[in-house]
């Protein structure tokens, strides 16, 4: 066999290995993304379980759809929007930041401001 044949074989093997590694990495990466996203989604037919933790038929369907959408190159945000449009915000464990939930998100900060305000007045009174 000629020398350039060896090079050809090594070249093909090398790039096959790279391709295979990248493929495995991509699959693992998508599985990781599916896990992290489905952990944030509520199983609507279970008692306070995430889609990831549940084996219900509904959860398995959603896992499949999430994986499909990620493989299609959709972002997490797009997938969440897709699911919220069909199942409502209830499917999300973490509520969206929008006008409807503004009170929910701002309430801890309002409490903090009130707390600080009273603490300030109390300490001022004590110092006087």
């Amino acid at each position: 066999m000629k020398l350039h044949h060896y090079f050809k074989i090594i070249f093909i093997k090398f790039f096959s290995l790279i391709f295979f590694t990248l493929n495995v990495y991509a699959i693992e990466n998508i599985d990781e993304k599916v896990k992290s996203l489905t952990l944030e989604l509520r199983c609507m037919t279970c008692q306070n379980q995430s889609i990831y933790d549940s084996d219900a038929e509904f959860s398995n369907d959603i896992k499949k759809i999430v994986k499909q959408k990620l493989q299609q190159g959709k972002s997490e945000r797009e997938i969440k929007k897709f699911l919220v449009e069909r199942y409502g915000e209830y499917i999300l464990f973490r509520p969206l930041i929008n006008l409807n939930n503004i009170f929910l998100w701002s309430f801890p900060f309002i409490l903090l401001i009130f707390g600080l305000f009273f603490l300030l007045i109390k300490t001022k009174k004590k110092s006087v």
Binding site: M44, F58, D61, I65, R86, Y87, G88
Partner: peptide, 12 residues
């Protein structure tokens, strides 16, 4: 394949 149910937001 359950895709129509998904579009309707069916969960059971």
């Amino acid at each position: 394949d359950g895709l129509i149910a998904l579009e309707f937001g069916v969960f059971g």
